[in-house]
Design a binder for these strands. Sequence first.
DNA 1: TTAAGCAGTGAATCGCGATTCACTGCTTAG
DNA 2: CTAAGCAGTGAATCGCGATTCACTGCTTAA
Lengths: 191, 191
Amino acid sequence: MDAQRAAILEAAVELLAEHGYVGCSMSGVAARAGIATGGVYRHFSGKAELVAELFRVVVSREVAAVEQAAAGSGDLTSRIVAVVETFAGRALKAPRLAYALLAEPVDAVVEQERLVFRRKFAEVFTKWVEEGMRAGVLPRQDAALTAAALVGAVAEVLVGPLAAGSADPDTIPSLVTFTVRALGGNDARNA
Amino acid sequence: MDAQRAAILEAAVELLAEHGYVGCSMSGVAARAGIATGGVYRHFSGKAELVAELFRVVVSREVAAVEQAAAGSGDLTSRIVAVVETFAGRALKAPRLAYALLAEPVDAVVEQERLVFRRKFAEVFTKWVEEGMRAGVLPRQDAALTAAALVGAVAEVLVGPLAAGSADPDTIPSLVTFTVRALGGNDARNA
DNA sequence: TTAAGCAGTGAATCGCGATTCACTGCTTAG
DNA sequence: CTAAGCAGTGAATCGCGATTCACTGCTTAA
């Protein structure tokens, strides 16, 4: 059965959310999953495979949350607002996890997954930027670059608060303002 | 004498630029500096101290380059252009080093230094954003947040090319355009 | 000239987590 | 009922880089 595989992954997710990547030792994950160290190797070829899949699981949850949030609202601006609010809001609610996803040092294998993570978000943004340009709401621009830049911008702004402790309550609104301005959206051009 | 300390650091810088953080093992650095492993411990209490100082050295060079580039030009826009061009240009010329500075996984001690690095750049930006607001060239905004966001944006856009191989030659101009627009600068609002 | 002291040596040791493996039960097909 | 096979055990082993340390030479001051 593969319920165990899922259970082990869930244990790893918990540890990641509690203690970050360092907390995800094979023995730690095994213990949390309620099995012995060696048991993990029945389901994963090694740490690399476990961790890669761990990241994939967590990332797809985040991407799904963001896409769903965006799907709800209508015009471009409210979509972007929804994306940033969801992304940032979730990050601030699960700081340890967000930090692990965005910035925490990990080994090379995982780093690849992290790049994938960021690229996925960037792709979501790219889609909307292109749509905005077609609709004439946004100025001409390199959509992929803008998207990557926005992902970086949001991540960077969040990492400070995440690494420290608390965040200014204005962080999210300010971030939204920045995003809209950076896109060149025709409302909210100032303030 | 402390010429040796400097020589060891320089060896570490070389290794960092060639092979990234992973290349900076104590024995590797010692070998490159032309001394035996143990010798390094005459000058540094341990790896943590060595690496922290290594980062400080490299970072201060980068910050100095950027500040100098900005000091040359006159109006706000050209300063910003200079900053982004310098920062990105240097990064693309020394990709391994830039990657190590911006994104490569490292241990906790170094991570602190990395945050310092990014904060320093953000501070440089903050100064100019505030100046721009005073001069009425830029709209009201949370200067520190904008600055952090821009550092993140530039870093993120660069990490892709750095991790892969080559960069689109339009990367830097596009980045400059993005930056100006994100600041809300009154020229270059589109295109 | 002698002795203290410092830079440097490099093999041995440590620490730490990943990985292995001989072994224990349970489950299930024949 | 029996034997194969699979999930799981957990102590031993590995790998790897940081760190230590007894020892070697050079330099310098008395």
